[in-house]
């Protein structure tokens, strides 16, 4: 499978990158690892005259953590480096779990977390754990800089709020709040490597068996990864017992909005949301 013609640019600085984007605008695509983009170019799903590779832009690299700022994932940090980072494993286990199930070894050596978000697939495995941790994307364009929450970033399947002259520079994840427990799960035929039928992340703080804080994010069951606000309301301030867990699982099944596609019917995905929500809450109830 050959690639269609395009011009490739490899800027070395953020300034060069922004100049190229300003110059070529909608005719250009920014490439992180290229594991989705090159495939989409080959199959004709995406066309572009200019491809701008960001791997050479030093400001956009690196994975760092400190207790005050939290985690910073540079735009071209690859999945394997984020997954192996000791702070990610210790402090953001749901993100580490999502990365562990995502793609093959070869793809993890090249694909980026920022790229996983910029593709804006409703199935993006890194989306729900990042949302549950309150992650923000740092965006830069010639006219200035802004930070947006991952939740706000998605606009629909394949669509984000990135402007044509704008790039992601990094993802910032605040330090996890005290006593926060998280749970990521994914269901797919191969359980790893392939795309999720459903993925979800729960973040919870329990005071005894009372739910002090809870956020639940569901992937693949709406046009974008979604926050399950009605399910959270069923749980917040309540005792996390078997009855409450069943009520929450039913609420999650009711509020998700899946479609039937090549992976499963919408009814099956909604049942999966029920079962996976129940299991996630049971596991969080047990480990407190």
């Amino acid at each position: 499978m050959r690639l269609p013609p395009f011009d490739y640019h490899a800027p070395h600085t953020l300034e060069e990158l922004l100049t190229l984007l300003a110059q070529h605008g909608p005719a250009a695509r920014v490439m992180g690892g290229g594991t989705d983009l090159l495939r989409a170019l080959k199959t004709g799903k995406v066309c572009c005259e200019h491809l701008i590779g960001v791997k050479g832009v030093q400001e956009l690299g690196g994975v760092e953590f400190d207790e005050i700022q939290g985690l910073r994932v540079g735009a071209h940090a690859v999945l394997a480096d984020v997954e192996r980072h000791p702070a990610v494993r210790a402090r953001y286990p749901a993100l580490a779990a999502a990365l562990d199930t995502l793609a093959t070894v070869q793809v993890r050596h090249k694909a980026t977390v920022a790229g996983n978000l910029c593709n804006a697939s409703p199935c993006a495995d890194t989306a729900t754990p990042l949302m549950a941790h309150g992650a923000r994307l740092e965006l830069v364009r010639p006219s200035g800089q802004r930070e947006v929450r991952v939740e706000e970033f998605f606009r629909g399947p394949g669509r984000t709020l990135l402007e044509a002259d704008e790039v992601v520079t990094c993802i910032r994840v605040p330090p996890p709040r005290a006593r926060l427990r998280t749970h990521f799960s994914k269901f797919s035929p191969r359980s790893r490597v392939d795309i999720a039928m459903v993925n979800l992340t729960v973040a919870m703080v329990l005071d005894g068996d009372l739910v002090e804080h809870v956020e639940l994010f569901l992937g693949t069951v709406a046009p974008t990864p979604m926050r399950a606000l009605r399910t959270e309301a069923v749980l917040r301030g309540q005792r996390l017992d078997a009855e409450r867990i069943r009520a929450a699982a039913a609420a999650a099944q009711a509020e998700c909005r899946p479609i039937t596609d090549m992976r499963a019917t919408k009814e099956y995905k909604a049942r999966l949301v029920h079962a996976m929500t129940q299991r996630a809450l049971e596991s969080l109830a047990v480990v407190r």
């Binding site: 499978m1 490739y8 490899a10 290229g34 594991t35 090159l38 495939r39 590779g53 791997k55 394997a80 070894v105 070869q106 793809v107 050596h109 090249k110």
Partner: peptide, 14 residues
């Protein structure tokens, strides 16, 4: 590090 050479541009290997 292993990569898929079908999803890597030759110019990326410079």
């Amino acid at each position: 590090r292993t990569v898929n050479s079908c999803l890597t541009l030759a110019v990326e290997a410079d």
